[in-house]
């Protein structure tokens, strides 16, 4: 555990909680892509199956349970509790176009051809593109609420901090996981366009389609 890794995890946690609180407080999920949230729930579920097979640390176990719990709570709020406010007409990204190629790739490029390892690889690849439905929704509606941009900003910070974490781990521990690093770089690049707009437009972000 290094400072970048810890800060990255906390930024990730902040993003998840900001989104949950936004939906809960405003009683609305307008402007939020339910499809991205389904993908994140799928990411956490397939990645954290190792909760059942291996113990790493109390921190690790608690964070995994919180991430999974919050992901399903968010999906529940969007598709059940506040369904009436869900922007389904604009949330039209076809997630099968992500899930199918990512599923195929995880079978082809992985560390070990075993069920848990393939699911872990699937989750890593899927996470790298899971935000696309959300960015697509913003480009369709033309603008995002300030709180939604804070959510995206925290997610982007989390990805960037994980890159520093990997540089740290490579330098000081000689550790690197090429699958996680390549997917992480792709994911961070997807946030760069958003970051630029966040900084230059003073949080009032509209992603041009």
């Amino acid at each position: 555990m290094n400072i970048f890794r810890l800060a990255g995890d906390l930024s990730h946690l902040a993003a998840i909680i900001i989104l949950l609180l936004k939906i809960w407080k405003t009683r609305s999920c307008a402007g939020i892509s339910g499809k991205s949230q389904i993908l994140f729930a799928l990411v956490f579920t397939t990645r954290y199956l190792d909760l059942l097979t291996s113990f790493i640390s109390l921190y690790n176990t608690c964070m995994k349970i919180i991430y999974i719990g919050c992901a399903y709570a968010t999906v529940h709020l969007i598709y059940m509790k506040f369904k009436a406010t869900y922007d389904g007409n604009h949330d039209t990204f076809r997630i099968e176009f992500l899930i199918v190629p990512v599923g195929g790739l995880s079978f082809l490029v992985n560390h070990d051809f075993s069920p848990l390892e393939i699911l872990w690889t699937f989750s890593i690849y899927l996470e790298s593109v899971a935000i696309l439905p959300q960015l697509f929704l913003i480009s369709k509606t033309g603008e995002a609420e300030t709180i939604t941009t804070h959510y995206l900003f925290c997610l982007g910070v989390y990805r960037a901090l994980y890159l520093f974490n990997w540089i740290w781990r490579f330098y000081f521990e000689g550790f690197f996981d090429m699958i996680a690093i390549v997917a992480g770089v792709v994911q961070t690049i997807l946030y760069c366009d958003f970051f630029y707009l966040y900084v230059t437009k003073g949080e009032k972000v509209a992603i041009p389609s």
């Binding site: 990730h12 991430y67 872990w120 000689g174 996680a180």
Partner: peptide, 10 residues
């Protein structure tokens, strides 16, 4: 651990 199969990150 230097084993990529040991997934200790979140």
């Amino acid at each position: 651990s230097n084993d990529p199969l040991h997934h200790d990150e979140l």
